[in-house]
Design a protein around this nucleic acid. Structure first.
Lengths: 227, 227
DNA sequence: TGTACATCAGTGAACGCGCGTTCACTGATGTAC
DNA sequence: TGTACATCAGTGAACGCGCGTTCACTGATGTAC
């Protein structure tokens, strides 16, 4: 079912979309709306099949435009995929900004990190699902883009960790710890996405415990093995 | 290029496959060979696109049979996928059996676990890649089968951990730790699959450190938070 | 051992369908004067 | 403010292609006697 359309003549407007008739909408505004509708349709349609199973015609049908109009917005499904990667990681970064605010003690950092992650995964379900799927998905271009973003992400976390009282950790060790934490957070996100709502408390409890184990382990490992 | 064929008349045999002409091969043997060829072709072809991008006709062409002959072996691509899941986890279990042998001290367990994992991922590259891809792949049936296997796997590891000197851990805590370790091993496997050979030492070093951090963390976390 | 019949892995033609992409087009919006 | 022209998001017909699936078939292998 079309969710939005570019309307040229009133008689083409479906009844249920009457409120969407563009009145005093500039051409570029309308173009942006259609672009948005394409991205949303793609997020919805890839939920079942992944980007690999998404066809240009499906997207066009869902948006309510003719297949060829797709090309006014994207060169290919791959390019659409890259736009979604960018968008999804934008929402991920917003999440991290939330965690950075405040959170003085280690215990509080763990608690708020897991809470914020859990909430954000559910709020941005479609985006997180997209990233999780395409991380090992069918399109090399999109897959590599996702992996590059995760690496960037991991480096940023390493920088954040350096600010905590972890006396004299080497850059390498910070990267190793960061990699472990990011990996664990990805796994948790995938579990939240796949889980029934009633299993959510179990999963967040587990994630908290694991994050704590990792941090405690990192501190003790370092102090016992350090130079 | 077809990699094996069921040959009925000698004139149909490609030159380079002349040595594969079935002589004194029973009907069921030949059927098994073709089945094997289909599984191998699918493993090869899904490497780029995932199971979602695999067509029955592609597989048939690769194997050197007519598309309709596929149905003599599998009801659908999904059923073929399930067979590959079973096969792939078989190879994973074989790996774990290797690790269980010997390995008295914790440090040795960590070392041999990572070595064996790293070696096995490369030996069974196609199988590991298949699992990694289909874990969040397009076919719900196959995806769920992979996840169920990982859960089984996690439970088995929890049982193994219970035999180590981890005084009086609860079943729940063992599951939490096991989940963390399995997640980290999956992440490591995916990194090995995606990495250049020259980056392998870095990755295994990192995996060792992380596993050690996790174990040290688990022990300390438990002793500091226990009842 | 030889013969007659059953089995069944693989064949090949045919089908309707959805796909990406081309192309010339339309007509509302935007702009220059 | 009004007019003439340019822009360009969306249209619709058409294309060739690979897809999964149907069906009746073939002929080597297997079996009953």
């Amino acid at each position: 079912m079309p969710n939005t359309v570019h309307i040229r003549t009133p008689k083409r407007v479906p009844d249920n979309l009457a409120t969407l008739i563009p009145v005093n909408v500039s051409r570029s505004d309308q173009k942006e709306r259609t672009r948005r509708a394409i991205l949303d349709a793609a997020l919805r349609l890839t939920e079942d099949t992944g980007l690999a199973g998404l066809s240009l015609r499906q997207v066009a049908k869902e948006v309510g435009i003719v297949p060829t109009a797709f090309y006014r917005h994207f060169d290919s499904i791959d390019q659409l995929g890259l736009a979604l990667v960018e968008e999804s990681f934008g929402s991920l970064r917003a999440m991290i900004r939330d965690v950075r605010q405040g959170s003085p003690s280690l215990g509080q950092i763990v608690d708020s990190s897991v809470s914020v992650l859990s909430q954000h995964v559910r709020d941005e379900r479609a985006h997180f699902g997209f990233i999780a799927r395409e991380k090992s998905g069918g399109s090399p271009v999109v897959r590599d883009a996702v992996r590059r973003e995760f690496q960037l992400f991991e480096r940023e976390l390493a920088t954040d960790l350096a600010r905590l009282p972890m006396e004299h950790w080497s850059t390498e060790d910070l990267r190793i710890l960061s990699n472990l934490i990011v990996g664990s957070m990805i796994a948790t996100s995938e579990e939240i996405l796949a889980a029934e709502p009633r299993d959510l408390p179990d999963i967040t409890h587990r994630a908290r415990t694991q994050l704590l184990m990792v941090i405690v382990g990192a501190l003790n490992w370092k102090s016992s093995a350090s130079h």
